[in-house]
Design a protein around this nucleic acid. Structure first.
Lengths: 250, 250
DNA sequence: CGTCCAGTTGACGACCTTCAAATAGAGTGG
DNA sequence: CCACTCTATTTGAAGGTCGTCAACTGGACG
C-alpha cells in the first residue's frame, strides 16, 4: 500500500511544531531540512507499525490522522492517542527497542520515515533539538495521564466532550482548525475505542450532545457553537497539553 | 512535616535503576554521587508537589511508596501511577514548567530533591545519563498507555489482577519483592482511585480473588500463590515495562 | 440500483455505583 | 489492660450507566 517518494518532502508540520517550542537557529533548521526522510503515502485503516515490532526508524505524520492503539488478549481495542500532522507517534522506539503499541492510519496519510541513526545523530549534534523531542514525549505522557483520568473518572458524556475539546485545541495549535470548527475524520467506532465504551453508546452520547446544542457533527465536520459550555461539560483545562503560547481563538 | 537532612544521602535506588539500563562509568557514578540532594522525610498521605506548581527541583524516591494523581473538577481522584524507590515522578518538570499532576506519599517516605539546575547540568555533561532519564520518561509513558487500556477495556476483576501483576514485577525489579510476595501498603480506597472504580467494588473484587486462590492479601502483605494464573487473568505481559534484563523469578 | 459500511434505534441485562450500616483492626489515653 | 476513637474493610439492597444483541436506515460508490 505504501508509495515511497523522495521528491520535496514537506517537513513543515514537524518544523512548525518545534518552532512553537523554541526559535530554531538557521543551523538547526537546515539540519532538520537536511534530514534524510523517506515519504510514504498510505491508505486509511493501515497499520504503520505494530506492537512487538523492533523498528529501525521512526516516522512523523506529514498529513492525515493516525491513532496509537493497543489490544487486550481477547481482542478488544483501546486507542490511547490520536495523532495529527507534526506528531512523531513512535519516537519512543529510539530508546525502547520493542514497540508496545501499534499505529494505524485513520485517513489517507503521508508519513515521513527517519532512521534512528539519523535521528540519533541529529540529537547528538543539536542538544536543543534533542531536548525538544524529549519535551514532546513528556507532553505525550501528560496527555496519556489525562486520558487515564478521563477514562477512569468521567462518565461517557463528559468523557466525549473532553476528547472533542482536546482534539479541537490540538488541531488549532497546528493550524488545522478555524475558530471552533475543524475536520474530524473519526468514526463513532473509533471514538468508542478511544473512550473505552461501545459504538452504540457513542452514538447515543453524540446525539444527546447535538440535542443539547453542544456540537454540530455531520460527516467529517465538527462545529462547536458553544465552546465555553463544551469545555465546562468536558471538565477541560488545556494546561496538560503544555502548549507554548497558544494563539487565542478569534 | 518535612525534616530536611543532608548527611549521607542514599542514592542507591536511583543509581541502581540507572545501572539496570546501562553500565555507569566511574565518572558517571561519581557525578551522580556528587549531585547535591536535599533529603526530606515525609509522613504518609502528604502531597509532595501539587498540580499547578512550578517547581524548581525534581525529586527521587529513596524509600516508601508514592502515587501520582489528578482530580476532576467535581473532586474525583484518579491515581495514574504508583511510584516506588528509584522513581523520579516529576522529571517532566525539568521541561514542562507547570505540573499537571500531584504526587502524594502512600507511606512514610524519604525523598531526595535535586534542583533543575543541577539536573540539567548533569544531563549536559553526561549525555548518556540524559538519555537514560529520557528513556525512563518513555517507560513511564508506556505504563500510562497500558493503564489507559486497562481502565478502558478490562473489567474490574482482570483490571485489578493486572495492576497487582505490574506492582509485583516492578517491585521485584528494584529488589523489593521476594519470589511472588511483597509488601503492598496500598489501601482499597487507593486501589479504587487507581482502577477507576469504587472502594466497595474493590473490596468485592479482592474477596473474589482471594476465594479464587489468586492472591493472599492481608494488611500490607501480598502473596501470589499462582503467578501464572494471575498473569493470565490480568492479561499481563510485562513487555510494556521495558525492563532490561529482568532477573527471572526463583 | 445493489452493495457496503457508518450511523441509528429498541429491548433487555450486567457490571458497577450509591447509600447505609456493621465489623475489624490499629493506635491512644485512662 | 481496657475503653475509646479513627480509619479501613466488609456487607446488603436498590438503582443507574452502559453493554449486548439485533435489526434497520441512510449515504457513498460503482
Amino acid at each position: 500500500m505504501a508509495a515511497p517518494q523522495n521528491s520535496h518532502p514537506d517537513y513543515s508540520p514537524l518544523i512548525r511544531k518545534l518552532e512553537s517550542i523554541f526559535a530554531l537557529t538557521d543551523d538547526e533548521r537546515q539540519a532538520l531540512l537536511d534530514l534524510p526522510m523517506q515519504v510514504a503515502v498510505l491508505a486509511e485503516d493501515q497499520d504503520i507499525v505494530r506492537e512487538g515490532d523492533r523498528p529501525s526508524r521512526s516516522f512523523t505524520i506529514l498529513s492525515g490522522f493516525t491513532c496509537t492503539y493497543k489490544m487486550t488478549g481477547d481482542g478488544k481495542r483501546q486507542i490511547v492517542a490520536f495523532c495529527i500532522p507534526g506528531d512523531v507517534p513512535d519516537v519512543q522506539s529510539l530508546h525502547l527497542k520493542v514497540l508496545d503499541i501499534s499505529v494505524a492510519t485513520l485517513t489517507p496519510c503521508s508519513v515521513g520515515f527517519i532512521t534512528h541513526e539519523d535521528l540519533w545523530d541529529l540529537c547528538m549534534r543539536y542538544p536543543r533539538i534533542a531536548a525538544a523531542f524529549w519535551r514532546e514525549t513528556l507532553v505525550e505522557g501528560a496527555i496519556f495521564r489525562e486520558w487515564v483520568l478521563n477514562v477512569g473518572r468521567r462518565e461517557a458524556y463528559p468523557r466525549m466532550a473532553h476528547v472533542l475539546c482536546e482534539l479541537l485545541v490540538r488541531l488549532r495549535a497546528v493550524g488545522l482548525a478555524q475558530d471552533h470548527a475543524c475536520n474530524l475524520p473519526i468514526t463513532q467506532g473509533e471514538f468508542a475505542d478511544a473512550l473505552g465504551i461501545t459504538t452504540v453508546h457513542v452514538n447515543r452520547v453524540l446525539q444527546q450532545m447535538r440535542a443539547d446544542g453542544l456540537i454540530e457533527l455531520k460527516g467529517d465536520r465538527l462545529k462547536v457553537p458553544d465552546w465555553e459550555t463544551l469545555k465546562q461539560v468536558g471538565d477541560f483545562d488545556p494546561i496538560y497539553l503544555h502548549l507554548v503560547q497558544e494563539r487565542p481563538a478569534a
